[in-house]
């Protein structure tokens, strides 16, 4: 007999004791754990989804349709005032690029432009760096994701994001179904029964339609925009030199928001 009852119990007891300590230590130090949430610049990445928007092809009408399609797909309710929620929205040159607008004598064309703003799915996202629970994290393919079941609602990511891309559910989004005034603004909420509404107290933002992308489809905004005007939104892998987005960026001059901050934004505005 190798082990008697007494020894067996000893081993079990000791391994349980070590197990508790070791598990948390391993969780902290496990290789890959850190990289998963903060992708180091040295790591060889193969995919980084990115988007280019052809400003010569988009107009207010198209953008409004795009915004509506996105917000309907993801059940983002219309809430007036500063407690609003938005995943994608329009902003003029002065407010989309405030640091470049001061004293810039821009062309009339640019002056009239409305830029669609959304999460930049940064190479080096400050939101993921500051999140204390990894509720927001960067996927292998570069999409900056949100886990609405883990988010504690500390809003550190909202302070961290230099693009104002994040919204917080100050109240229960489903209140728009009960509240009279909000009901008028959102008559058919929730518009997409297949996608869950969020709960009060969590942060949300554009998730680059990761579920569609995983299936080889295009994000809702790209799909909607290209149906109205072909080639207005270009989506692709920025790390692949042969991708459509890289091809267009070789030909056209593009702006990115606040590139000096080193976040590496992946939304390009073709001027």
């Amino acid at each position: 007999m190798g082990v008697n009852r007494r020894e067996f119990l000893k081993i079990i007891g000791l391994s349980a004791l070590f197990g508790i300590g070791a598990k948390s230590a391993l969780q902290l130090l496990a290789p890959g754990e850190l990289e998963a949430s903060v992708p180091p610049l040295t790591k060889e990445k193969k995919i980084q989804w990115a988007m280019a928007i052809d400003m010569k092809k988009v107009d207010d009408q198209l953008l409004d349709k795009v915004i509506e399609a996105c917000h309907k797909y993801y059940n983002v309710p219309k809430i007036p005032g500063p407690k609003e929620l938005k995943w994608i929205w329009k902003e003029d040159f002065e407010h989309a690029f405030p640091e470049q607008a001061e004293g810039a004598y821009v062309t009339e064309e640019v002056e009239k432009m409305h830029f669609p703003l959304l999460c930049n799915h940064c190479d080096n996202p400050p939101c993921c760096r500051v999140c204390p629970t990894k509720a927001t994290f960067k996927r292998e393919d570069g999409i900056v994701m949100m886990d609405w079941h883990r988010c504690i609602g500390c809003r550190f990511c909202m302070a961290g994001c230099p693009y104002g891309s994040r919204s917080f559910n100050w109240g229960d989004p489903r209140r728009v179904m009960k509240n009279k005034d909000l009901r008028k603004l959102n008559p058919d909420f929730p518009t997409n029964k297949k996608f869950p509404t969020r709960t009060k107290g969590v942060v949300e933002k554009c998730i680059f339609c990761y579920e569609k992308v995983d299936k080889g489809e295009l994000p809702v905004c790209v799909e909607t925009a290209n149906k109205i005007k072909k080639g207005s939104f270009i989506f692709g892998n920025i790390l692949d030199p042969e991708s459509e987005i890289r091809k267009v960026l070789r030909k056209r001059f593009a702006l990115r928001r606040k590139p000096v901050l080193g976040t590496g934004p992946n939304i390009f505005y073709l001027i």
Partner: peptide, 23 residues
């Protein structure tokens, strides 16, 4: 009192995140 989801507060311990200053 500032947390949106106070009942999830312990997530800070369950998912220790050394790159977050809040941790």
């Amino acid at each position: 009192v500032d947390l949106g989801k106070p009942m999830r507060m312990l997530n800070v311990l369950f998912y220790p995140t050394p790159h977050s200053i809040l941790f």
